[in-house]
Design a protein around this nucleic acid. Structure first.
Lengths: 239, 239
DNA sequence: GTCCATGGATTTGTCGGACAACTGATGACT
DNA sequence: AGTCATCAGTTGTCCGACAAATCCATGGAC
């Protein structure tokens, strides 16, 4: 189970740092939602094949950065999805288009890596989000659609198995939701779908075809970026 | 219920948090100058009247905020007097490959945008850095080469006119220099040039050809990434 | 004299177990 | 029904042991 050949080399550094990355990955990827309770320290230690003290040091680090909160006698809970340093504020000050352009670059690279490194578990998460997205699209539920769409992209990035990428993307999430809201305010839900671009991306990742995945991601993100540019350049909607 | 009793409990919170405060106080107050070595974990435990594991958790927290650095077999040292902000903390701990992969995504996108938005001034900066890079290459000056190379890429990103992208890339700079150093330690300077990939990228930006610029950037970064992966996955050079 | 390897001492990294402190819920008693 | 004691579960802290990495002094080869 723990043998994942194509993954990052084991023992890159101290075990604690690896444990921190792994736990943070579960949070930033959305696998552990805000407010949820983590497995007990003993269970985590068994799952990661390390001692409880190692898990404790990792949890303490994340608790000190604001991502986790440990309550004695009760358990450890997810407090936030991204650290609350000045990085969030800087993002808020940046323009939507600037954020989207950076996201574009990251996600195209993530799509390529995801096609190379995805596990079956990654694929299941991607498919699950995609199914939710389809359902919301069929029922024309805007808010459900936005949530599922972001979850889909987050699952793709998670499949790239790059902690830094994952965290960066997670901090973009709120801005991306705002992008979607901006688009939804102007256009009908059906126009945003991108004519199955998401299905194509998922299929490419399933087929482990990096170039195809990168093309699918680039095409979709490009078209959305064009829409966003046109929309934001016209002084139509104040907001 | 939560009314604080007249006798404030000696334990304001978990012992570890108190230990963190105490250690941080020693650093921020200057009692422990930057670069100095801390007492051993056992000595600290005796001085604070806590167990070594408690001291360890506290040290780990401060290490992750950038104030301390623990070196196995050597000791724990003061790394900075104030916590480093933003992404610096996260980047320092991330693997070189992770950073490079994110950089890859950003710079390919930046190359495309640069081809669309570059001004004559941007072009001049790019050409100037490229000339310095060529000169350093001809004279086989490693350090000058690394500096000029990073300056070139930074100029390309600047030409994209996306403040967020620029800031993000700037925070990568130190990690990129380390990537270059890793490569230079293994290979000859001539092998790194990439057979004129930089000239091709500059030419594409000059010609305002986004797709050609993106292709040039992707090709170059991909080849370097492959070298880096091969180098970092083999335990050949002990760093 | 200079250089290297070599082995011991030192220090952090990880492990496993034990008990205390606290929480939440269950069940007994009034 | 309400109140309280009890108990299992979880985090907090402590302890001891060994592994891994580093530092340094010692000594031999040249």
């Amino acid at each position: 189970m723990a043998a994942s050949p194509p993954l990052a080399s084991l023992r890159r550094g101290p075990l604690v740092d690896l444990a921190v990355d792994q736990l943070r990955g579960q949070i930033t990827s959305g696998a552990w939602p805000v407010g949820s309770r983590l497995p007990t320290e003993i269970e985590l230690a068994q799952q990661m094949q390390v001692a409880r003290s190692t898990v404790r040091e990792a949890i303490r680090v994340l608790a000190h950065t604001g991502l986790l909160e440990a309550r004695q006698g009760s358990g450890t809970y997810v407090r936030a999805q991204t650290p609350d340093d000045g990085w969030a504020a800087r993002l808020r000050r940046a323009g939507l288009l600037d954020v989207y352009e950076v996201r574009q670059g990251i996600e195209v690279g993530a799509a390529r890596l995801a096609a190379e490194r995805r596990t079956d578990h990654d694929l299941a998460r991607i498919d699950e989000a995609l199914a939710r997205r389809h359902a919301a699209l069929a029922e024309a539920r805007d808010e459900g659609f936005a949530e599922a769409d972001v979850a889909f992209h987050q699952a793709v990035v998670a499949a790239a198995h790059n902690p830094l990428m994952q965290e960066l993307f997670a901090s973009f999430a709120s801005a991306l939701v705002e992008c979607l809201r901006t688009l939804l305010a102007d256009r009908a839900l059906a126009e945003i779908d991108g004519s199955g671009a998401h299905d194509e991306l998922a299929a490419a990742i399933r087929a482990r075809d990096p170039e195809r995945a990168a093309r699918a991601a680039a095409a979709h993100l490009d078209s959305v970026a064009r829409d966003l540019r046109r929309l934001l350049s016209t002084p139509g909607t104040g907001g």
